[in-house]
């Protein structure tokens, strides 16, 4: 069974880091991965997207066809909506509700969130608020990664190991905060699924 995932957001938000952490986690298993990303022009505050596919066999290419993603992870609500067409009808949305308003004509946030709420499988997270609660404002991505992990064909420990590897060179306190946020995200996704 293949798991197809889209990660969407804005340049500089750390999409490539999330993708790389999941990728390293896959390497700890027998599963195979392909993950595509766009570099270059897109990086300077523009829209950025990464496609990620995991399977027992090497996925054919790194591009997820429209209406086929099992999971859409959005780091920014407008970008989540921009990629809704990639999600399959039963697919899961996990999205941050924190807008990045670096463009003219940014739609009203409440309209965007209502649009997302129309989908019954959507988990909307006040990512920055939750991260601030755990005293780590910069850790929103780790929270979202934790929530996404619940829907991936990977053990949480595999993703955690790869997170530990990623922050190995940093202070212990940074790693601990990241792990706490990861657990929080995982727990929120689990609660949401149990509803």
């Amino acid at each position: 069974m293949q798991t197809d995932m889209i990660i969407a957001g804005v340049g500089g938000q750390g999409i490539l880091t999330i993708s790389a952490i999941i990728g390293e986690a896959v390497l700890q298993t027998d599963l195979r991965i392909k993950q595509s990303e766009v570099h270059g022009m897109a990086q300077r505050g523009g829209a950025v997207v990464s496609h990620l596919r995991i399977n027992q066999y090497p996925p054919s290419t790194g591009l997820v066809p429209r209406h086929q993603a099992d999971l859409l992870l959005g780091l920014e609500p407008l970008e989540t909506i921009r990629h809704l067409d990639w999600l399959k009808p039963t697919g899961q949305i996990i999205s941050s509700i924190d807008p990045i308003k670096n463009i003219p004509g940014y739609p009203e946030l409440e309209l965007l969130l209502n649009k997302l709420r129309l989908n019954k499988n959507s988990l909307l997270l006040k990512a920055s608020e939750l991260a601030a609660e755990l005293n780590f404002k910069r850790g929103t991505n780790t929270l979202l990664l934790g929530a996404a992990t619940y829907h991936l064909p990977l053990k949480a420990t595999a993703v955690k190991n790869s997170l530990i590897k990623k922050f190995a060179s940093q202070k212990d306190s940074i790693l601990e905060k990241n792990l706490a946020l990861f657990e929080r995200g995982l727990q929120l996704a689990k609660q949401n699924a149990d509803l």
Binding site: M41, R44, G46, L78, I81, G105, Y106, P107
Partner: peptide, 19 residues
């Protein structure tokens, strides 16, 4: 066939720009 219909939301683009 493409069974699924694409939604037609009009979203403002987010092009790259100078930092």
């Amino acid at each position: 066939d493409n069974e699924e219909q694409d939604s037609q939301f009009q979203l403002p683009p987010r092009p790259p720009k100078l930092c």
